[in-house]
């Protein structure tokens, strides 16, 4: 080991720290780019969901094109920052955007196909958005948490539809499936809400939003996150909100069945007074 010369004693430390500084600066810049993109993706996804949130599938496409464009650009811009080692390094910075986008994507998918987009489909979809920068990773956690949020959207969708049409939306069922909507609806205003419960087709054939919500709820409740993981905590929080969302639709439907006739069309069931949730619950 050589004897360090007198003045050398200070500069190596500064040189070392200068090295650290440039490394950390690079890291922070990358991190901020990802966070910014995540925010923009979140905002655009929320806008998509808002517009989608109309009981008519016809509204689905046009007005949202610009937001899909924003999302595409954002993912493209940051895909380079999210390659290899960095895919998980900035995972927690992009997860917000990923989840929100997942919510929009799965909701749109539901409105178009009446089923749940699979993880593989969603993963491939997001990966493609990375374009030349390389695929962007959508983790299973992002996917699942996005689906949790999507339940809230379905709830809004169902409540709004019930308020405007006076029935639970079942009209979205594919044409070859038995449609519940066509069975109980004679005409919008004079709909007899008590009759359908007896004249409805057997339960197994029924497909409406509530049935889908319940099915989703069962699936989400069935998941067992690994103990001690961050995902466990995240999922737990969303689980409460998700359950309340399903219950809100059930309560609204109850209100519709019991008192539906007495109420004018366009009336929105005021659940906020009946059930006040202690925590942050998805509002309408």
């Amino acid at each position: 080991m050589e004897e360090p010369s007198k003045r050398q004693s200070i500069s190596p430390v500064m040189a070392m720290f200068e090295g650290f500084r440039s490394e950390l600066d690079e890291h922070h810049d990358r991190r901020e780019r990802v966070i910014k993109a995540s925010r923009d993706i979140t905002a655009a996804s929320k806008k998509i969901v808002r517009t989608l949130n109309k009981p008519l599938p016809a509204f689905v496409t046009k007005s949202n094109a610009q937001y899909w464009g924003i999302i595409q650009t954002q993912y493209k811009n940051i895909s380079r920052d999210l390659q290899g080692l960095n895919a998980y390094r900035y995972g927690r910075n992009i997860t917000g955007g990923n989840q929100e986008f997942m919510e929009a994507l799965s909701f749109q998918h539901y409105l178009e196909h009446q089923n749940l987009i699979s993880y593989k489909e969603a993963k491939n979809y997001v990966a493609k958005l990375g374009e030349e920068g390389g695929p962007v990773l959508l983790s299973t956690e992002d996917y699942i948490l996005g689906i949790f949020d999507m339940v809230g959207e379905l709830m809004r969708f169902a409540i709004t539809a019930m308020a405007t049409s006076g029935e639970l939306p079942g009209t979205l069922i594919e044409k070859d499936l038995p449609s519940m909507g066509s069975h109980d609806e004679q005409s919008g205003d004079s709909m007899d809400v008590e009759q359908p419960s007896t004249t409805r087709p057997p339960h197994a054939q029924k497909r409406d939003v509530l049935a889908d919500l319940r099915e989703l709820r069962l699936c989400l409740e069935g998941l067992e996150p690994s103990r001690g993981s961050k995902f466990e905590g995240d999922a737990e929080k969303k689980m409460t909100v998700m359950r309340q969302c399903v219950e809100k639709v059930e309560t609204a439907l109850y209100g519709l069945i019991v008192r539906g006739q007495e109420r004018p069309k366009g009336w929105i069931p005021d659940l906020r007074e009946e059930r006040r949730a202690p925590e942050a619950v998805e509002g309408y």
Partner: peptide, 28 residues
Amino acid sequence: MADRSGMVDPAIFEDLQARIDEETTVRE
């Protein structure tokens, strides 16, 4: 509810759970 006409393809959540279980093993 008939799975066939249901909203969720059961394979989706089976696959997810399998992935989570794998991670649980790694974690331990």
